[in-house]
Design a protein around this nucleic acid. Sequence first.
DNA 1: GACAAGCTCTTGTATCTACAAGTCATGGGT
DNA 2: ACCCATGACTTGTAGATACAAGAGCTTGTC
Lengths: 242, 242
Amino acid sequence: MTIALHRVIAADLRQRIRGGTIAVGEALPSEARLCEEFATSRGPVRQALATLREEGLIGVGQGKRAVVLDAVPAQPFETFLSFTRRAEITGHEPGQQLQEIALRRPEPAVAAALGIDLDEKVVQLLRLRLLDGRPAMLERMTYVEAVGRPLLDADLDAGSIYALLIDRGVDLHSARHTFDAVAADALDARLLEVPEGAPLLRERRLTTDSTGTPIEWSDDRYRPDIATVTVTNTRSTRTAAL
Amino acid sequence: MTIALHRVIAADLRQRIRGGTIAVGEALPSEARLCEEFATSRGPVRQALATLREEGLIGVGQGKRAVVLDAVPAQPFETFLSFTRRAEITGHEPGQQLQEIALRRPEPAVAAALGIDLDEKVVQLLRLRLLDGRPAMLERMTYVEAVGRPLLDADLDAGSIYALLIDRGVDLHSARHTFDAVAADALDARLLEVPEGAPLLRERRLTTDSTGTPIEWSDDRYRPDIATVTVTNTRSTRTAAL
DNA sequence: GACAAGCTCTTGTATCTACAAGTCATGGGT
DNA sequence: ACCCATGACTTGTAGATACAAGAGCTTGTC
C-alpha cells in the first residue's frame, strides 16, 4: 500500500515542527521549495499545507510564507473521542489500567442521561488512564447493555474501546461534552495520586449514534497538571456565507 | 472585488442544504455535474466540497457521492465565544462588571502566547460575569494593542466585546480553547465568592484572525456550580479523511 | 435464485500551465 | 533620514489532463 504523497509531505513537515527543526514563529519553506524537495508539483504540497492549516499547526496568508503557530496540534474532531490518539499526537506514551467492569442497574442520574428505564441493565467501567506512566485521567463509563455486552469479554487493557466498538459495527456519531471542575473524592485521590479535594477537570460526555439514541455516558476526571483538553473552532461557517 | 469561484460554489451548496433543496442524508450532485453547472473545472468544485466537509456539513468517501450530514454545523463560532449568547440560550440573565481595564506591557507567558515582543503593549481587561445576579465567571483578557485600543473608550458594561470588535472590522476567525482545573486564588475567591482553593474550571483561549495571527489571549475561570462549558462534536466529518 | 465477474460512475491523486494578488526588501529620489 | 515606487518572490485561483482506486449496479453463469 502506497501512502499518498500529500500525506507524506504533511507528516514530514509535522515532524520538523514538532522536532524543532522549524521553530515556532518561523516560516516554512516556500511552496516552490517544497516542490523541489519532494520532487512533485504544487498540488500535493498545497494539499499538505491545507491539512496542517486545518490542524492549527501553521498560519498562512497570500504573498507570505506559512508560519508555524504552535508545536502542539489542535485535535481534529474524531481524536476528541480518543485519549490514545491524543496522546500519540502530542508525543506521549498512553497507558491504561482497568479497575472494574460490571453489569448492573444504573443510578437514576445515569439512567436519565441515557434515556433508559431504571430496571434496564448497563455495563459500567472504571478505568485509569496513564501518560508516560503517570496517572492522568480516571474514566467512569456507562454503556447501554446492547452496546456494552461485547466489552465484558474483551481485553480492555490492550486496545481502544472506541476502536473495538466501531469494529463491532457500533455507530458512534456525535458526542456532547460538558466541562466543569470538581474536588477530588477519596477514589479520585487514591487512583490519580492527588490529595483529596484537589481540583480536577471533569468532562461529562454523552455519546449518541446517528439517530440520536444515547450509547454511552461517561464521567472523566483529569489531573490538570498532566492532561488538559483542547478544542478548536472556526468562524468560517459564517464568514463564507456572506 | 470578485469573489473566488470556489467560495461561490460553497455558498451556493450551503444554501441548498440549509434551504432543504438537498435534504439531510441525501447525496450532493457529483463533481462532474457541479463542474457543468458552474461551468468550471474540478479544482474549484473540489475546493468548495473540502470547505463544506471541514464545516461538518457533508461527509465524503472515495467512489461515492458526498452526503449531507447535518443542516446546521454542530458548533457555531459565536455560541462558543459569547457568554451572553450562551446565557440567553439557556434562559438565564447575563450580567457583567468590568473590574479593570489597562494598557500595559504583558507578562512573558502572555507575550509568548500572543507571539509578541515583551516591549509591545497590550490591553488587559478583568471582568466578572454574572448569571441571574450571581458571580459565574471571571475573565482575564489580553488584546494586542491594535485590536484592544478601541476598547479603552467603549462602554464595556453594556454590550458584547466580540460584537464591538467585529463591528470595528476585526477579523476574528478561529479560537483554541484549553480546559483544565485550578484552585481559586485570592482574587478568584473574592470576586467569585468561593473559598480560596475551591476548584474552578479554567478555559484558556487563544483567538486568531484568518491568517493565524493571534489577537486575544484569555484566562477564564468558571464557578462550576453556576456555569459549565459544553461542546458538541460529530465523528463523521473526519472518518473519510483517514 | 444466488453468486461472482465485469463495467461504469465516482472520487482521490498528481502534473503542468497560467495569471492574479499580496508581501517584502531594495534602491532611488526628495 | 525619510518616503515611496519598483520589482522579485510568494501564495491564491483556475483550467486541462491523466490515471488509480473504491462503490455499486448490471449481467451472465451456475
